[in-house]
Design a protein around this nucleic acid. Sequence first.
DNA 1: GCAAGGTC
Length: 849
Amino acid sequence: MRTVLMVAEKPSLALSLAKILSNGNMNSRKGSNGACSIHEYRGKFNGENVTFKMTSVCGHVMSCDFVGKYNSWDKVDPAELFNAPIQKKEASANLHMPQFLRREAQGADYLVLWLDCDKEGENICFEVMECTVCVMNRVPSQQVYRARFSAITDTDIKRAMQNLVSPNKNEAQSVDARQELDLRIGCAFTRYQTKFFQGKYGDLDSTLISYGPCQTPTLGFCVERHDKIQSFKPEPYWIMDVQITHPNGKSVKLDWERVRLFDKEIALMFLNMVKDSEEARVVNTTQKEKTKARPIALNTVELLRVASSGLGIGPHHAMQIAERLYTQGYISYPRTETTQYPENFDLKGVLRQQQSSPNWGDYVSKLLSEGIQKAKKGSDAGDHPPITPMKLAREGDFDHDSWKVYDYITRHFIATLSPDCKYLQTTVHFEIGLEKFTTTGHQLLDPGYTAVMTWQALGNDEDLPKFTKEQTITLDHARLSERQTSPPDYLTEAELISLMEKNGIGTDASIPVHINNICERNYVNIISGRKLKPTPLGIVLVHGYQKIDSDLVLCTMRSSIEQQLNLIAQGKANFFDVKQHAIDIFHRKFKYFVENINGMDQLFEVSFSPLAAIGKPFTRCGKCRRYMKLIPAKPSRLHCASCDETFTLPQNGNIKLYKELKCPLDDFELVLWSTGPKGKSYPLCPYCYNNPPFNDMRKGMGCNECTHPTCAHSFSKNGVSECVECDRGILVIDQSSGPKWKMACNKCNVVIHFLEHATKISVQEDTCDCGSNLIEATFTKAKSKLPDNAEEHTGCVFCDPVLKPLVEKHHATSFFQNRGGRGGGARGRGGRGRGKPKDKMSQLAAYFV
DNA sequence: GCAAGGTC
């Protein structure tokens, strides 16, 4: 029997789809990666009896990144990132998705792709095909199909199954282009800015000065509002404050039809006219029945808006809570744009679950018995049904915030099926002389949905006293009040979410991430009322872009890129042409940005302090011997003002002095990094940490136990030896070079490659007659290069007849001589010749305890 | 140490 493999975008959807397609008759098992399940059932496919296997991925299978050295911030000029080679790699290393898919596709005959019906989903289709088609059985007919569905309902899913189409390469490619553009542009600008400003200022308070086509315009909105507040000039205006007393004794304030005037003279003129006429005449009274409409069904961005403005929970945290409620089965899938319930959605069934709730159970019972309202028409984005409760929960089931989110989602759901709120609005129209005034009151007719969404309930407005036409009432008083226009307030998170949604910046899933990013990078702070106040850093960044190239921060930038990419998706333009065109434009923008960075720097100068002015003297520089300053702000680093050089340090720990000991390689004073009293700690040389002394050693790498190439660990394990090629040097074993061991002298650039296939080498305390220390080498018998395949030998690499032939000695051009460490001259100034080897070893031993 | 997009 043939097998049809079917793949959905996420485990929950695979389950829903399989239930529908198998009519609930299926066998399920967990997949090899622990995250995805496989649901199997029998059925017909193209008139043939087959076994269906429905499973899923977890979002994207692959993501893109630069290859090898292009991931290094030190070796690559950011400008190169616009042309650097790019590779696809597994999106999540621990899920082993390609392997899982290959295993399940083994021996399958057909593939049906049930990925979400958007461009990202189409792109994942091709990622799935890449992993599966090669291991599937070859059948004569076409074997790959795409299901197109617009709602997760019985009819829609079954119809999609009967009308399979082909995956759309154009749509998938538009996503490939987007990924590549985001990567190249984001990383190039981020690396350049970070290095430029971190190298100059000591109090930026952000480890990263990032740029991104979504996060930067998001920040732009916050700064735009800040600028409006700053440039706001309050203007005085005047309102007329008129009060009358109804014959029943009730005071009533009247609203002026002109509302307010900005000219005091004219306002005074009207006031005098009003005062002259002394009494108000009732012109007429109107009554209108008004409704406050029940909400439409809930989607993600609305949930996030209310969570922020109503519950005081930020979007990022709200999403985390919603996801947990979802995986625990309390609510439906929380990432959706749809605000319309599917046709056959069991609204009453969901309501019935809530009948026993102590919070709203009575209301729900009443609603069910009186009949529910038809939900207001929303829009169907074709992704997932709106967010609804899935089972009853009680307050004690969750922590406080989770309960608030569940409580809101459930009340919102009930409200969508409740009557509108109805009230009667009464307006009394007055004339005082020729000026018109009104007063209004309302009377609740039916609270409707506001009985369950209580925060929207109308205030208990006392009824207006009854006025009759032509009735005249003497004024209690009439006077002008001077007021001032007030600046707008900082943007609330809820407003920002709306702006992002409106401008197509981010998606329902990524909007919280972008907002979180600009907070974490310290570009904005959340102030009371969940408003976003930009920091000096955020402000100078945005103003800087505006000065150099305002396109970079424009709120339309994302949507204009998307527009270009849509041409690929629609098959109207060639993938490579559009992509290359966009890359070229941003490459030019990047070059222009770099050339004009001074424009932004001038703004930084005003807000931030240069490295030289920050921090306290800490340890000595190995080059100039002057004290370097420790910059405490993130990222902590050492700065030498006289050499104008900055040395980064390992982060997230404390940096202390380390016994004023110096690195034997470059004379920089060592520092001790530690993570608190009981945490990890290791000494390191600031210079070696930034300029690894060995060619193939990564920055920050060294001994396995710490990061120093000549640390206590490597000294005690492998040792250091006197170099006999020069009179000052020390031979150091490169910790990272085994099993092709390498030693190098820090002074004369001699490099010794030796003893290939030795499993271990170490330096002995004993010395050879030549002065160098003896080396002990250990081999496995099979690979031994020693006579008679001996496993161990001790000797001097310069003189020993057995070891000498196994050693290749040469002078490197790039090992130490290009390192900026202190050169050979100074140390010998006192005419101190070559010390006795033993002395040197004990001298070294003093460095490391 | 970078982006944004999926999702767990």
